[in-house]
Design a binder for these strands. Structure first.
Length: 487
RNA sequence: CGAGGCGUGGCGCAGCCCGGUAGCGCACCUGCUUUGGGAGCAGGGGGUCAGCGGUUCAAAUCCGCUCGCCUCGACCA
C-alpha cells in the first residue's frame, strides 16, 4: 500500500473526517457518526442481524444503567472493567437564574450509583434468572444491539471510542459442551461475515489466559492485520462456563429433576469494524469500500458543456441508474451543477465508491460510457447495454479481488520467526504478524510485551502442532502462536 | 496518567516575540463566463480572538489561573 507506515495514523484521521464518516464530538473520546458513516454501519448491521436470526437468536433490549452491586457479583469481571467505568451518581441538576450557572444538586445523590454499561453480562444474567426454570427453557439465545461505554484513556475514531455501538449475544445452555459449541459457532459466523462482506481476512484462535475476557473460561477471537502492520481484534466469542450463572444464581431443573447452574456464552462485534475496513483497503486517495457494504456501489457522473446537453445527459444518466437499481444495486447520480466533473471524481474516490460511470457528450453520440474501478484506478469505455449488464459481475469480482489483495498483503506481513532478535527487528521495522514458539507461561508473555510491545493475539486454530523451543525462554513449546503489536 | 502540541469567522491557518483599525486560503451569497481529473473573474456577508482575573490611556498580543481538544506513550473484552 502506498501509505507510509509512519503516516497511517494521520492519514486515517483525515480520511475519516474528509470522507464524511465521522467527526470528533465535544465529548472527549466520543464521535459523531455522520450519515455516510452511519449508512456504512447499517450495511454491516443488516446482514449480521439476519445471520443471527437465521441461527435462531432473538433480539431484546436491556437497560443502559447497571447497579454498581451487580458488577461486583463476578469478581474477575469487575476487576477487568473497574478502570474504565462511567458512573451516574446524581439524578438532578440545579440552575441559578441570576448567574446562569448549572450545577449538580448535592441533595440528589442516588442511593446506589449506576454504572453505564461497559458490557451487559451482569444485567442480562440478572434478568435470565427469572427467565429460566427448566431445561425446557434452554437454550436461550438472545442478542442485543446497543451502545456501551468504556472510559478509554487513548481513544481513536471507530477503533477505540469511549462510547461505541455493537451487538452483544448472550446465550444460556444446559450443558458445557453445548455452550462451547455455541461460542465456536458464532466465531465461525463472524469469520464468514468479516471475510465475505468486509473482504477482510482473519485468523481464528483462542486467547491466552492473560488476554481472556474478564469472567470468561475461554475467549475466542478473529484477528486481522491492518495496512500499518498493527493487529486488530475484529470480533470475540466467549465461553463463560457457569461463572455468571453462579454469580446471579441462575439454575435450571434437568430432565432428572436435579438443579444445575446454567452454562453461558457471550459474543460481540462493534463499530470498530468500520475502522478495520478503512485500514484494510484504503489507499492514498481515500477509502476503498467493499461493494457488499458500500452505501453507494456505483456513482454516475454526467458531464455536459451546455444547458441543452445537460438536460439530455442527465436524463440518460437517470435512465441508466434506474436499470441498475432494478437489479438491486445502490446507485447515485451526481448531477449537482455546483461542481465540475474533476471535483466529483476526486470526491467519490475519497469516499471509496467501488465503480464510477462517467457519461458525457461523446458517449451520448456513440451510446457508450466510461467505467472506472476504484481499487485499481483502471478506466475503460463500454457500450451502454454491455456495461449495465456486466456491472453486477464487476462488483462481485471487485469484492473478491479486495479480499485476495488483503490476503496477499497480510501474508507478506506475516513472518515465521525462530529467534527473539529477529522478532524484535521485524516489529521495529514494519510490524506485522509473527508466528513463533511460546512456552505457555504468562511470565514469558508479559516479558515479551514489556520488551517489544507485542502481545499474543491468539493461539491459532489452524496450525499443525509443531514441537519447538520458546523464542524467549528456550523451553519446550507445542505450537506457534501469533504475536503482534495491536490497536 | 506521563510527554509534546493547539484553542483567532463553518474548516485550515497567519498575526503574538516588539500592545495601537482583526487578516489570509477554502467554504458560503450574487452575477457573468465555465464543466471529460478538485474552474476563472468581479462584488459581498460572517469573528464575545477558549474562559476568568491582572498590568496598561489602550490587550488576540504582556502576566497569572482555569477549561477543553489533538498527537505520541503507559493502560485497555
Amino acid at each position: 500500500m502506498p501509505i507510509p507506515m509512519q503516516t497511517v495514523s494521520e492519514w486515517y484521521n483525515e480520511i475519516v473526517e474528509r470522507a464524511g464518516l465521522a467527526e470528533h464530538s465535544p465529548v472527549r473520546g466520543c464521535m459523531t457518526i455522520k450519515p455516510y458513516g452511519w449508512a456504512l454501519w447499517e450495511n454491516i448491521q443488516r446482514p449480521l442481524d439476519e445471520a443471527f436470526r437465521r441461527t435462531g437468536h432473538q433480539n431484546a433490549y436491556f437497560p443502559l444503567f447497571i447497579p454498581l452491586s451487580f458488577l461486583a457479583k463476578e469478581a474477575q469481571h469487575v476487576e477487568g472493567f473497574a478502570q474504565e467505568c462511567a458512573v451516574v451518581t446524581h439524578y438532578r441538576i440545579k440552575t441559578n437564574p441570576e448567574t446562569r450557572n448549572v450545577s449538580i444538586d448535592p441533595e440528589a445523590a442516588l442511593e446506589e450509583p449506576l454504572v453505564v454499561r461497559p458490557t451487559s453480562e451482569t444485567i442480562i444474567w440478572d434478568a435470565f434468572r427469572g427467565w429460566i426454570q427448566s431445561y425446557r427453557d434452554l437454550p436461550l439465545l438472545i442478542n442485543q444491539w446497543a451502545n456501551v461505554v468504556r472510559w478509554e484513556k487513548r481513544p481513536r475514531l471507530f477503533l477505540r471510542t469511549a462510547e461505541f455501538l455493537w451487538q452483544e449475544g448472550h446465550t444460556a445452555h444446559a450443558t458445557a459442551e453445548e455452550a462451547l459449541q455455541e461460542a465456536l459457532r458464532m466465531l465461525d459466523l463472524y469469520e464468514e461475515f468479516v471475510q465475505e462482506y468486509l473482504a477482510i481476512p482473519v485468523i481464528k484462535g483462542r486467547k491466552t489466559p492473560n488476554e481472556r475476557f474478564a469472567g470468561a473460561v475461554e475467549t475466542f477471537t478473529i484477528e486481522t492485520l491492518l495496512i500499518d502492520g498493527k493487529a486488530l481484534q475484529a470480533g470475540t466469542s466467549h465461553f463463560l462456563g457457569q461463572n455468571f450463572a453462579r454469580a446471579f444464581d441462575v439454575k435450571f431443573l434437568n430432565a432428572q429433576n436435579e438443579l444445575e447452574y446454567v452454562w453461558a456464552t457471550s459474543w460481540g462485534v462493534s463499530t470498530r469494524l468500520v475502522g478495520a475496513v478503512i485500514l484494510s483497503h484504503g489507499d492514498e486517495k481515500g477509502l476503498i469500500l467493499p461493494p457488499k457494504i458500500a452505501p453507494i456501489q456505483v456513482i454516475i457522473i454526467p458531464i455536459w458543456r451546455s444547458e441543452e446537453e445537460r438536460a439530455s445527459i442527465v436524463s440518460k444518466a437517470h435512465e441508466i441508474a434506474a436499470h441498475l437499481r432494478a437489479k438491486g444495486l445502490r446507485i447515485k447520480v451526481d448531477d449537482d451543477p455546483q461542481h465540475r466533473p474533476g471535483w466529483k471524481f476526486n470526491e467519490w474516490e475519497l469516499r471509496g465508491v467501488p465503480l464510477r460511470i462517467a457519461l458525457g457528450p461523446r458517449d451520448l453520440e456513440t451510446d457508450t460510457l466510461e467505467v472506472a474501478w476504484r481499487y485499481t484506478g483502471e478506466k475503460q469505455t463500454y457500450p451502454t447495454q454491455e456495461a449495465i449488464q456486466r456491472i453486477p459481475e464487476w462488483l462481485e469480482a471487485t469484492q473478491l479481488a479486495l479480499f485476495e489483495r488483503a490476503k496477499a498483503r497480510i501474508q507478506s506481513q506475516t513472518h515465521v520467526v525462530d529467534s527473539y532478535a529477529e522478532m524484535r527487528d521485524i516489529l521495529e521495522k514494519a510490524g506485522g504478524f509473527i508466528l513463533a514458539h511460546w512456552d505457555g507461561t504468562t511470565e514469558t508473555e508479559l516479558a515479551i510485551k514489556e520488551e517489544t510491545g507485542a502481545t499474543i493475539r491468539c493461539i491459532p486454530f489452524n496450525t499443525n502442532p509443531e514441537l519447538g523451543k520458546c523464542i524467549y525462554s528456550g523451553r519446550v513449546s507445542q505450537q506457534r502462536v501469533l504475536f503482534a503489536r495491536a490497536y
